[in-house]
Nucleic acid binder design. Structure first.
Length: 610
RNA sequence: GCACCCGUAGCUCAGUGGAUAGAGCAGCCGAUUUCUAAUCGGCUGGUCGCAGGUUCGAUCCCUGCCGGGUGCGCCA
C-alpha cells in the first residue's frame, strides 16, 4: 500500500536529513488532492516549518533531497508554499496490479492486531414489520461488520431484537380477544400489528382496557404459562418472517440474542450496582447519578439549568420494580464482555439515542468495564415533506415493499432495453425519421431465461436500495424518496454493477483459458488513472473504519467504476495485442476483482450479465 | 431553558486544516457499422447560513448569532 510505504520513507528522510521532529509530530503522506501535481502529497514541510519557524519551501527541498523513493516514484517536486508532490512510476503501479490480480484480499493488508468486535445492528421489534426506518441500521451495520471482518478483525454480529417490552400487554390482550387465526396464518406480522393497533386505540379511549393490558403484562413477566406461550408464538412467527427479509437482503447474524435473553440477569445486576454504590434509590426508583468524576460539561448524568448543574439520572429500575432499556443494555454489555471477550462493541443506532448511550457507557465503565463502546449514530429518515418519518403515526413504508419496487423497476428497464433492441433491428437503417435519441445501440440479443432475469433484477434492485443508503454520509438526515432510492442512473448500484459486467463480458469473448503475464506497460492516461484507483483500495478499505463510514467505500467504488468506464471507452482491449493487450486485460481483471470485493463489502452482489 | 445533529449549485448530496470547493439528477451540445449506451466527452450552474477569531492557509477548528431537526426521571 503506497501511502504507508511512502509515509515510512518520508519519516526515514527526516532522520536522514538530520531534522529533529518536535513532540507529537508525525509526518504523513496522503493521496493527492489535485492529481495535476502528482499521486501522493505531503504537507509535512509546511506544518513543521511553522513550528520551527523556518522557510517551508527550503525545508521541503531538504526533505526531497533525502527522500529515497527511486523504486516507487518517477517524480518528486516541491510546489506552491511547500507541498511535496510524488508521482508513482508506471513500474510501481504495474507491480501493484500484479498483486491485486493474485492476492485473495486484492492487495488489502490485514490489521496488525485483530480485535474482537461485536456489532449490534438492525434490532427490529417483535410483532412489528421492518420498515424503512430499519434501513440505516441494518445496511450500515452489515457493511461495517463485513469490512471489519475483511481486514482481519474477529467480528460477532448480534441482532438485539426487541422481544420484551410493555407492548406485549396489548398484544396478548388482543391475541386473546380479537385474533383472526386465518389472517394470522396468511400474514402473521400484519395481523399482529392490526391487533396491536386496535387494542392501542381501545386503551386510549377506555382506561379499563389499559388496566387489563397492564395486567396481562404483569402476568407475562411473572411467568404465566398461557401468556408466555402467546409471547413465544409471537416471537417465533416474527423471527420466521424476519429470516425471510434478511435472506432477501443477503444479511446474516451470528446471534439473535434479544432483550428477553437477559431477563434473569437484571435483578442481580441492579442489586450489584446498589451494593457497589453506583446506583441509589431515589423517589422509589433505582437510578444512577453522577459520581462527579467527570467535568460537568461532559458528564451524561448532569444537565445545566440556568447557572446550576442539575442531576439527569439514568433509571435502571422503575418504582414499580420494572426494568428498562438501560438495564437490559447494561446486562448485554456484561454478557458480551464476559462470554465473547469483546474488545469493542459497536452500536449502530440512530442519533436521537445518543444521551442514552452516553449514560449506559458511563455506567458500564464505572462498573469496571474497559471494552471500547462506540455509538455509531446516524441521522433521521425524513418524509418527502422534510419532517420526521415517525413509526407510530401514519403509514410507514415496509422494507420489503421498497425492495420489491426496486426489483420491478429493474425489470422494466430490462424489458425496455429488450424492446429497443427489437425496434432497432426492425428499422430500415435508411429510415432517418425514426433515428431518434430514444433508440439505443442494438446489443447482441441477451436471451435471458426467466430465472436469469429474476436473479439479475434481484441483485440490481436490492443493490440499488442498499447503495442509495450506503453512499450517503450516515450523520446527515435522509430524505426518503422513491426516485432517489430506486434510481438506476448516475451514482447508483447499477452503474457500478455495469462496470463489473463490462469487465466480465470481455473475458467471455476470449477463447479458452486466459493466462495473464506480468508483462505490463501502463502508458495511456486512462490506463494510468485506473491503475491508480485500483491501488488505492488498499488504503480505502482501512479508512472506512476510522470513522465507521461505509459511504467512503461507496465513493471510492463510484470513482473506480467511473475510471473503468472511461478506460473502457478510451482503450479497446480485445483489438490490442501483445503487452498492451496483456496490460489491459490485467486492468480488467483487477477492476473486476476490486469491484466484486468492494461491492461485497457493501453487501451488494454482482452479476455476470445485465 | 440546556444538549446533540444539520445548513455547500435549481434539486439530492460528497468533501472534518491545503493548491482553482466536487458529483449525481435536472437543462443544453456532442459521441455508437468496434469488447454491454444502465456508457462516454463537453457546457451551464456557488457571497460553502451570517459575523468575528486562530492560522502561511478555514467549507472544515474556536466564539457568537440566524434557520431546520431531535433529545432531556420511571417507553424502547
Amino acid at each position: 500500500m503506497f501511502r504507508a510505504l511512502l509515509t515510512s520513507r518520508l519519516q526515514a528522510a527526516f532522520t536522514a536529513a538530520g531534522i529533529d521532529l518536535p513532540e507529537g509530530f508525525t509526518p504523513g503522506v496522503v493521496i493527492a488532492s489535485d492529481t495535476r501535481f502528482g499521486d501522493y502529497q505531503s504537507n509535512a514541510a509546511m506544518v513543521l516549518a511553522k513550528q520551527l519557524k523556518t522557510n517551508p519551501r527550503a525545508l521541503a527541498e531538504q526533505i526531497k533531497a533525502a527522500l529515497q523513493v527511486e523504486d516507487l516514484c518517477e517524480k518528486i517536486t516541491v510546489d506552491g508554499p511547500g507541498f511535496l508532490n510524488l508521482t508513482l512510476s508506471p513500474a510501481a503501479l504495474a507491480q501493484r496490479l500484479s498483486v491485486i490480480v493474485k492476492d485473495d484480499h486484492v492487495g488489502v493488508p490485514q490489521v496488525e492486531k485483530a480485535k474482537t468486535i461485536v456489532v449490534d445492528f438492525s434490532a427490529p421489534n417483535i410483532a412489528k414489520p421492518m420498515h424503512v426506518g430499519h434501513i440505516r441500521s441494518t445496511f450500515i451495520g452489515d457493511s461495517l461488520a463485513r469490512v471489519a471482518r475483511f481486514i482481519g478483525h474477529k467480528v460477532i454480529t448480534d441482532n438485539h431484537v426487541g422481544d420484551w417490552g410493555t407492548q406485549f400487554g396489548m398484544i396478548i390482550h388482543g391475541w386473546k380477544t380479537q385474533l383472526d387465526q386465518s389472517k394470522l396464518k396468511a400474514d402473521p406480522i400484519h395481523e399482529l400489528v392490526s391487533v396491536y393497533k386496535a387494542v392501542n386505540a381501545a386503551a386510549r379511549a377506555d382506561e379499563a382496557v389499559l388496566e387489563v393490558c397492564k395486567g396481562e403484562l404483569v402476568k407475562l413477566q411473572q411467568g404465566d404459562a398461557e401468556n408466555l406461550g402467546i409471547w413465544k408464538e409471537c416471537v417465533r412467527l416474527t423471527l420466521e418472517q424476519l429470516e425471510k427479509v434478511y435472506g432477501a437482503l443477503d444479511i446474516k447474524f451470528d446471534h439473535y440474542l434479544g432483550e428477553s435473553f437477559y431477563n434473569d440477569a437484571l435483578t442481580p445486576l441492579v442489586a450489584e450496582m446498589l451494593n457497589q454504590g453506583i446506583a441509589t434509590i431515589s423517589e422509589g426508583a433505582t437510578v444512577v447519578f453522577s459520581d462527579g468524576s467527570l467535568k460537568p460539561e461532559s458528564d451524561p448524568f448532569l444537565i445545566r439549568d440556568k447557572d446550576e448543574w442539575k442531576p439527569a439520572p439514568c433509571i435502571i429500575r422503575k418504582g414499580d420494580g420494572g426494568y428498562l432499556y438501560a438495564t437490559t443494555d447494561l446486562a448485554t454489555i456484561d454478557y458480551r464482555v464476559k462470554e465473547w471477550q469483546a474488545d469493542e462493541i459497536w452500536y449502530v443506532v440512530g442519533a436521537p439515542q445518543q444521551l442514552h448511550f452516553r449514560q449506559v457507557f458511563a455506567a458500564a465503565q464505572r462498573r469496571g468495564i474497559t471494552t471500547k463502546m462506540i455509538h455509531i449514530a446516524f441521522g433521521s429518515i425524513l418524509g418527502p415533506d422534510g419532517k420526521m418519518f415517525k413509526t407510530r403515526s401514519g403509514e410507514t413504508v415496509g422494507l420489503l415493499e421498497v425492495i420489491d419496487e426496486a426489483i420491478e423497476r429493474v425489470r422494466n428497464r430490462m424489458d425496455e432495453i429488450e424492446s429497443n433492441q427489437e425496434l432497432y433491428r426492425a428499422i430500415d437503417t435508411e429510415n432517418q425519421a425514426l433515428n431518434e435519441r430514444t433508440l439505443i445501440k442494438p446489443q447482441a440479443p441477451k436471451n435471458y431465461t426467466a430465472t436469469e432475469k429474476d436473479e439479475i433484477a434481484h441483485i440490481i434492485g436490492g443493490g440499488a436500495v442498499k447503495y442509495a443508503e450506503l453512499s450517503q454520509n450516515r450523520l446527515t438526515d435522509y430524505k426518503f424518496s422513491w426516485d432517489k432510492m430506486l434510481s438506476l442512473q448516475g451514482n447508483t448500484a447499477p452503474y457500478l454493477i455495469n462496470a463489473y459486467v463490462r469487465t466480465r463480458s470481455i473475458f467471455r469473448k476470449l477463447e479458452g483459458t486466459v493466462s495473464l503475464s506480468e508483462d505490463l506497460a501502463i502508458t495511456e492516461p486512462a490506463e494510468r488513472a485506473l491503475a491508480m484507483k485500483l491501488a488505492q483500495f488498499a488504503e480505502n478499505a482501512h479508512d472506512i473504519l476510522d470513522d465507521h463510514r461505509p459511504n467512503l467505500l461507496a465513493n471510492y467504488l463510484y470513482e473506480l467504476a467511473s475510471a473503468y468506464h472511461a478506460f473502457f471507452e478510451a482503450c479497446n482491449v480485445l483489438r490490442a495485442e501483445g503487452t498492451v493487450r496483456n496490460t489491459r486485460l490485467t486492468l480488467c481483471e483487477a477492476t473486476s476483482r476490486v469491484l466484486k470485493t468492494g461491492l461485497g463489502l457493501l453487501g451488494i452482489q454482482t452479476t455476470e450479465r445485465m
